[in-house]
């Protein structure tokens, strides 16, 4: 079973073999969860959204059309995160509790954590659409054409937006460093 492609599994699921959903869950739940986590910085919420994503995949399986499954599931996750922003604006997103959550230091990791918390800070300065692009493209390694499909955009537009977003991220990342050095 494990050698079937996502799309083949989805075909079986549409045909009524819901058990195949387990394989797709195994393949995607950590990615989707991390996408939500980077977008919301709220663990419980990310869990809820991830759960909701898979519920939607099952519920709307009949509307799935031969597309690339990964683009489809990311599009669902993205829309759910978006719904969430409509309710919660950005200032609320970064309340104290979440800040602590986000920048808490995990003792078991050996990387220079200063950089990562700075990166988190810089990422949070971006608009939702810029952040989304960077999380998908650079954190999760999706290809430009996949992102274009997910965001319902063109390859060229994604490229341009990505460059701009990366520029902004870099600027706010290094601005922060300079402040530290002063």
């Amino acid at each position: 079973m494990k050698t079937l492609t996502d799309e083949e599994l989805m075909e079986l699921i549409v045909g009524g073999n819901l058990d195949m959903m387990r394989h797709l869950f195994q393949r995607y739940h950590i990615k989707i969860y991390n996408f939500c986590w980077q977008m919301t910085k709220d663990k419980d919420l990310s869990k809820d959204i991830t759960q909701e994503v898979f519920y939607k995949v099952i519920k709307h399986r009949k509307t799935y059309r031969q597309n690339k499954f990964s683009s489809w599931i990311y599009a669902i996750a993205r829309n759910l995160c978006k719904d969430h922003y409509k309710i919660l604006n950005k200032t609320e997103r970064l309340n104290d509790k979440n800040l602590k959550d986000t920048y808490s230091i995990n003792d078991n990791r050996s990387e220079p954590l200063g950089n990562i918390s700075q990166l988190n800070f810089a990422l949070d300065q971006l608009s939702n659409s810029d952040r989304e692009l960077i999380v998908m493209g650079k954190y999760q390694g999706l290809k430009y054409y996949e992102i274009a499909k997910i965001t319902d955009s063109t390859l060229g537009a994604v490229k341009t937006k990505m460059h701009r977003a990366m520029q902004k991220l870099k600027d706010s990342y290094f601005l922060k460093t300079k402040h530290h050095e002063l």
């Binding site: 819901l18 058990d19 959903m21 387990r22 869950f25 739940h29 950590i30 969860y33 991390n34 986590w37 663990k43 990310s46 869990k47 991830t50 759960q51 898979f54 519920y55 099952i58 990791r109 990387e111 220079p112 950089n115 990562i116 700075q118 990166l119 960077i134 650079k138 954190y139 990342y173």
Partner: peptide, 22 residues
């Protein structure tokens, strides 16, 4: 730096809830 960001792992109840839903 981006490449150093580690994946977060969800609590196990995500999978349990998924199984229950399925």
């Amino acid at each position: 730096t981006i490449n150093q960001v580690q994946e977060e792992l969800p609590d196990k109840d995500l999978e349990l809830n998924f199984n229950a839903m399925l």
